[in-house]
Design a protein around this nucleic acid. Structure first.
Length: 667
DNA sequence: CAGTGAGCGAGCTTCCGCTTGACTT
């Protein structure tokens, strides 16, 4: 054997081995192979006495990290070290992104490589691309490694720096971090907005208008204005249930609505204007991890974690490309394959003359291509022999990929403007002229209110067959689902494809959030933790924190910013001071709608307090379902036991969490 | 005198990101 090639994933390695032949030995590192020690028992004896040992970073000495090989990686390192010793050269073919560069450097150190190594990078796995990558190796990029280390150090300092403040203030075993705390804060803001939302009633008036001609069907028009003033809808009301001060809209009473109904029935309507415009809709881009999780959630009702498990099996079975990616780009061969499948299904005219290309968003690292069927001939779903969830997910990926190369949907949108005295009405409808890609893949973006409108002429008078008024309530902002939270995090640049599903698992394991039907709600514990962090560490819960970090890491990666200077500014002159100055003690969360009631933590429990009486809150009670009656029931409960009292100690939230976390770990 | 249990104090918890199996429940 001459050359050892090290990749991150064994499935990838197997494939590349086939392209490279027996002159090369391809092996996997199984991701990162060294890390900061997580627990005290992982810290080597000689460092255990050091003041910085708990952090695993000697902040006084240029933020030097203490790296260890985790127990489960010892065997991998031993084997790689042996093979590296037998090889003339080692090609570090880890992913072409910041983390991949970091892994490559850790391999150099852990395997004790001495100059006989090069960096090999590729973005798609084809014979050509692999051959090219082998010919075009480059040296290790130490500045990029520095950016990766800085990222790791920042996350450790945030997580292990701030979590103890939560133990002292709210309960033991709690956690904070750059990613999870930003996600928790987003969930908490939404839950609080729902709790504080005041519904407003508004009226809608609808008319069934009869076009001319025999056998014609009535169509629905909605009243949009009275005497030139627009009618108030949900957008015109604030969260306090009041009409917004700057809103020009008219809020009508039930009486006025009834009068309008009677008026329309008696007078009929006149066609004031007919507007028709063509529109087209592009197919959505091929899947990234985030969009796959969103689509699987909508179409298949699969959670993020489950989606990734099934996708992993498809990947290992050679059915799809890599499932953790932030790039929607298709390789040339995949683009051709998708177009060929489309033509086979729907004929020559279902694809545009020029292939479509898709670019990643700004913050993407693009180490991989989009998630798509593997190979250069996509297997049709029913020819795969797959079944159950694997088949469903494969079909979703197959259709999305092929549809991405098909023609736009072409349609025509018509809006009828109707009048009846001072009352203005509107009716709109769409006609699909060419379904384009939607013949294969239909995103949920389709509108439900697609009525076929009749041909009418401007100035024409039409009778109103029926009219009715309905009262509606302005809706509170909707809860996040797993999918919509992932989308929000991705848009903010928080988290990575390999961690999206995990972020939600962490929030669930900490009992900061729970699923109710398909929606994520924040627990009382989550609200109290979020309130504390918002008070004491506002920078940590700001979605902009990661954006700033990424910019700084990019500067480190190109050598514009020194790692140590950046970390000194962040920690020594920043977060460390904030931690020192942080107030210890739980926040008192006032519940706007319930005067005199406060939620806070006492002796490791979340309690509701009124007039000095504190009662523990059950974890099952969803915060935004709290009612005045429920408050009374809770407050009639048993007071939280003072620490001095005899008798069995109340179950601590920390204990409960710990045991559930343990179970998780061993599972 | 031996065994039990209350009470006290010490020690631990925690991050993000990259990868799969080896474990239970």
């Amino acid at each position: 054997m001459k050359t050892l090639v090290i990749v991150e994933s064994p499935a990838k390695g197997k494939k590349i081995q086939g392209y490279l032949g027996s002159e090369y030995k391809v092996k996997a590192s199984f991701g990162h192979i060294r890390d900061l020690p997580a627990k005290k028992e992982d810290i080597p004896k000689k460092y255990q006495g050091e003041s910085w040992a708990r952090l695993g970073i000697d902040v006084q000495k240029g933020f030097e990290p203490l790296y260890i090989v985790p127990a489960e990686k010892k065997a991998v390192i031993a084997e790689l070290r042996k093979l590296a010793g037998e090889a003339d050269e080692v090609l570090l073919a880890t992913d072409g992104d910041r983390e991949g560069e970091g892994i490559a450097w850790h391999l150099v150190r852990a395997l004790g490589l001495k100059g006989n190594f090069k960096r090999m990078v590729f973005h798609e796995i084809t014979q050509d691309a692999i051959q090219r990558a082998v010919q075009n190796t480059r040296p290790l990029d130490y500045a990029l490694v520095g950016a990766q280390e800085s990222r790791r150090i920042i996350d450790r300092l945030c997580g292990y720096g701030v979590s103890p403040a939560l133990w002292q203030s709210i309960g033991s075993g709690l956690s904070a971090g750059r990613v999870q705390s930003a996600a928790l804060a987003a969930l908490a803001r939404r839950e609080l907005a729902r709790m504080n939302h005041v519904h407003a009633d508004y009226w809608r008036v609808l008319a069934q208008v009869m076009p001319e001609g025999e056998g014609a069907d009535p169509f629905t028009a909605v009243v949009v204005s009275i005497k030139g003033q627009p009618l108030a809808g949900p957008k015109d009301y604030g969260a306090d249930g009041q009409l917004k001060a700057d809103s020009p809209a008219l809020a009508i009473t039930g009486e006025q609505a009834a009068q309008t109904v009677a008026f329309l029935k008696a007078k009929g309507v006149k066609v004031a204007k007919v507007e028709t415009s063509a529109y087209s809709t592009k197919p959505p881009a091929p899947f990234t991890t985030s969009t796959l999780q969103q689509a699987a959630s909508r179409a298949l009702k699969m959670g993020a974690k489950r989606t990734m498990e099934v996708a992993q099996r498809l990947y290992e079975g050679g059915r799809i490309t890599y499932m953790r990616t932030d790039s929607p780009a298709l390789s040339e061969e995949a683009t051709e394959a998708a177009r060929a499948v489309a033509v086979g299904l729907f004929g020559d005219r279902c694809i545009p003359a020029a292939p479509r290309t898709f670019a990643a968003k700004g913050n993407a690292q693009e180490a991989h291509e989009a998630i798509r069927p593997a190979g250069k001939d996509f297997k049709a779903p029913d020819q795969t022999g797959l079944s159950g969830e694997e088949l469903s997910l494969y079909r979703l990926i197959f259709t999305r990929t092929v549809a991405s190369q098909m023609t736009d949907l072409q349609g025509s949108k018509t809006t009828l403007h109707l009048k009846s005295g001072g009352v203005g009405l509107q009716s709109s409808g769409r006609v699909i002229l060419d379904p384009g890609f939607t013949r294969l893949y239909n995103d949920e973006t389709d509108k439900k209110d697609e009525q076929q409108l009749p041909n009418v002429a401007e100035g024409q008078a039409l009778p109103v067959k029926d009219a009715r008024a309905e009262v509606k309530k302005t809706p509170a902002p909707g809860r996040f689902t797993e999918a919509s939270l992932i989308k929000a995090l991705e848009n903010a640049g928080v988290g990575r494809p390999s961690t999206y599903a995990n972020i939600i698992e962490v929030l669930k394991n900490r009992q900061y959030t729970a699923l109710v039907k398909d929606q994520l709600h924040v627990t009382w514990l989550g609200l109290v933790v979020a309130a504390y962090l918002q008070d004491q560490f506002p920078a940590l819960v700001d979605l902009a924190f990661t954006v700033k970090m990424e910019k700084d890491l990019d500067r480190i990666a190109v050598g514009e910013l020194k790692r140590e200077a950046y970390l000194t500014e962040f920690w020594t002159n920043g977060l460390e001071q904030t931690i020192r100055a942080a107030r210890h003690g739980p926040p008192a969360l006032a519940l706007g709608k319930f005067a005199g009631v406060v939620v806070t933590a006492r002796q490791e429990q979340i309690v509701m307090v009124r007039d000095g009486k504190a009662v523990p809150l059950g974890l099952a009670l969803v915060p935004d379902t709290l009612t005045p009656e429920l408050v009374e029931t809770i407050m009639a409960g048993e007071t939280v036991r003072p620490r001095e009292s005899r008798g069995p100690a109340p179950p601590a939230t920390g204990k409960a969490r710990k045991s559930s976390a343990r179970r998780k770990k061993t599972a």
